[in-house]
Amino acid sequence: MRVFFKLLCLTLAIILIGGCSNAPVDKGEVDKVDEFIILATTTSTYDSGLLDVLLPVFSQKYGTKVRVISQGTGQALETGKRGDADLLLVHDRASELQLVEEGHFTDRQDVMFNDFIVVGPSADPAGLKGIEKVTDAFTAIAFGGHTFVSRGDDSGTNRKELSLWEKAGIGDFKDWYLSVGQGMGDTLRMAGEKQAYTLTDRATYLSLKNSLDLEIVLEGDSLLFNQYGIMAVNPANHSHVKYESAVKFIDFLMSSEGQELIAFFQIGGEGLFFPGKGVDD
């Protein structure tokens, strides 16, 4: 028994020593290169894998690592407002512009866009496949009482979805409407299991397509374009933020190199993002 006690102590000691050697250390570099910056982004952006392509190129070039926090859009905006991140990559243009106006963020750029799609079971019980306008499609779902899974997590996608219901004039959500409070991937999975409709960004859907029993039932409506913005936390509000490195990152994404990397990013042979601005002011 004593052996176990000693073993326990030893294990703790090893963990302790190991922990010390791996603990993050501020090396106090002499040049002005930040060791890392914190980028808050949305789960859908993160899950698409685009950042896995962009970040290593940036880090190699500037020597600054990017630590990515993936959250719902609402939470990401809040994280930025509180100064817990250095910059944001999100897709809720109206809110972004308003927050820039209010002085929370600065140096905002329309960095890229993609589009939302409506997916559903291949049988398409609501008959959306022939419909062009997304508002009509939503009306059909609501009146037919077909199951619709909503992310319900205050993400950009969720906000988009709610605005579409509003545009369609639907305000009465009955038991056909499931608000699940999950990320896009989980929401898609639940829609697949329940053979329900949902609104998703194309990127997440494509990356999960093979493990889902869902098809695209509506795409291409200009209402479904999804503009991504990148912006830095305003250093006037939070003096600790690494503003210069954040601007470097924004400049990198807006540079021709960054824009090309975005344009050539593909999943399963399909491009997911279009560089620049895709919406009218």
């Binding site: 789960t43 899950d47 990515v68 926090i69 990356s207 999960l208 493990s211």
Partner: peptide, 24 residues
């Protein structure tokens, strides 16, 4: 922790993330 890859990602948060991404 924020589930930052290589920095604050631990087993449980990784399971949540990878399940969400379909990396079963």
């Amino acid at each position: 922790g924020g589930n930052i890859e290589g920095h604050t990602r631990v087993m449980t948060t990784a399971i949540v993330l990878e399940t969400g991404k379909g990396n079963f």
